[in-house]
């Protein structure tokens, strides 16, 4: 084990920022392509080969668009809110190990930017703090759709944080640590967590979809009901920052699911660890797009019903059963 230096951590932080924001931009292209293929369309085709430069076109459009602030809006909060979403999404990623440790130019780069020994809780807490982005955006813009979106943000995030936390509690009990690196080491010696905790995996997936505001549960900006919810009045790069935050959160949830439930970056048969985790993250990301193409929205009251009457009791029962099995 080599020594972790400040330089290594800075390199890791820059890597996370650069790669994840690039992937978040590229994710929009992937999403549009996958949704198009699932409806047997072509998707973006005209900018660059196979539409690959569509991201650049979108970026130019977002940057040159008028930055519009409504007259009665609370201007400071309106401008700050998108930054909160993007910032919390990236801060959450700082405690997530993405690749195995490696050495570049003789500098040891750790797998994780900030190896706090409460990794999972930190990620969950930061994603919980991310609720202030949509919330303040919706409340500051003096728009009734925004207010409804903000109200749904508060209700949805509080409810599904409970489910996320309780569903992860059972795996945490089995591993006996909150560090994501310990989870990865646990998977080296045991079968994947998804086979031992299938209920927890399904619950975490559902809650993860809800916390990242993905389609069956994207009630915050459900365009069929509330125009665009909290993002109604946003335009240009401020709207783009919400988007980057959402995609960064999707990647965070994908990484969490891969590390906790799908074996992390341990070597898989002949596949090296770094490739294995990329494949797993890519599959989780694809799953989110796949689900978006397949399933309709949930009604808000059904959604709350699902959280408190189905998922939370199931999670608690799962924790109790896991505890009994560990004790016996």
């Amino acid at each position: 084990m080599m020594e972790v230096t400040y330089l290594g951590i800075i390199i890791k932080a820059i890597l996370i920022l650069a790669i994840i924001s690039a992937i978040a931009g590229f994710g929009t292209y992937i999403e549009r392509k996958v949704l198009a293929f699932m409806q047997r369309r072509l998707g973006p085709m005209h900018v660059g080969p196979y539409g690959l430069l569509q991201i650049a076109a979108d970026g130019i459009k977002l940057f040159t668009k008028e930055d519009f602030i409504p007259q009665n809006a609370n201007k400071l909060m309106f401008m700050v809110a998108p930054v909160i979403t993007a910032a919390t999404a990236f801060i959450a990623l700082s405690a997530v190990p993405v690749f195995p440790d490696f050495t570049i130019f003789g500098i040891f780069v750790p797998s994780i930017a900030a190896d706090v020994n409460i990794g999972i809780l930190f990620v969950l807490g930061m994603m919980a703090a991310g609720l202030y982005g949509p919330l303040l955006a919706g409340m500051s813009q003096a728009n009734k759709w925004g207010i409804i979106g903000a109200a749904r943000t508060a209700a949805q995030f509080i409810s599904y944080e409970v489910v996320t936390g309780l569903s992860l509690l059972a795996p945490i009990m089995m591993v006996g640590s909150l560090s994501l690196i310990d989870f990865n080491h646990y998977n080296e010696t045991h079968p994947w967590m998804v086979f031992m905790q299938p209920v927890a995996f399904v619950l975490f997936l559902i809650a993860g979809f809800a916390e990242t505001n993905r389609t069956p549960f994207d009630l915050l900006e459900n365009e069929a009901e509330i125009i665009a919810g909290y993002a109604t009045e946003y335009s240009g790069m401020r709207w783009g920052m919400f988007f980057i935050g959402e995609y960064a959160n999707m990647i965070t949830v994908s990484v969490l699911a891969s590390i906790i439930f799908l074996g992390g970056y341990t070597d898989l048969w002949f596949i090296p660890g770094w490739l294995a985790i990329i494949l797993k993250i890519a599959f989780m990301f694809f799953l989110m797009l796949w689900v978006r193409a397949s399933w309709p929205h949930v009604r808000p009251d059904q959604f709350m019903w699902l959280a408190w009457k189905v998922l939370m009791p199931l999670a608690v029962i799962n924790v109790v059963i896991t505890g009994i099995v560990i004790m016996v």
């Binding site: 996958v34 699932m38 047997r40 369309r41 085709m45 796949w290 193409a293």
Partner: peptide
């Protein structure tokens, strides 16, 4: 949806007219 995607990608059954 996966079936439709595979149809579109592998068997060239796209609906789009450019």
């Amino acid at each position: 949806t996966l079936r439709e995607m595979l149809k579109a990608l592998l068997f060239g059954k796209m609906h789009t007219t450019k």
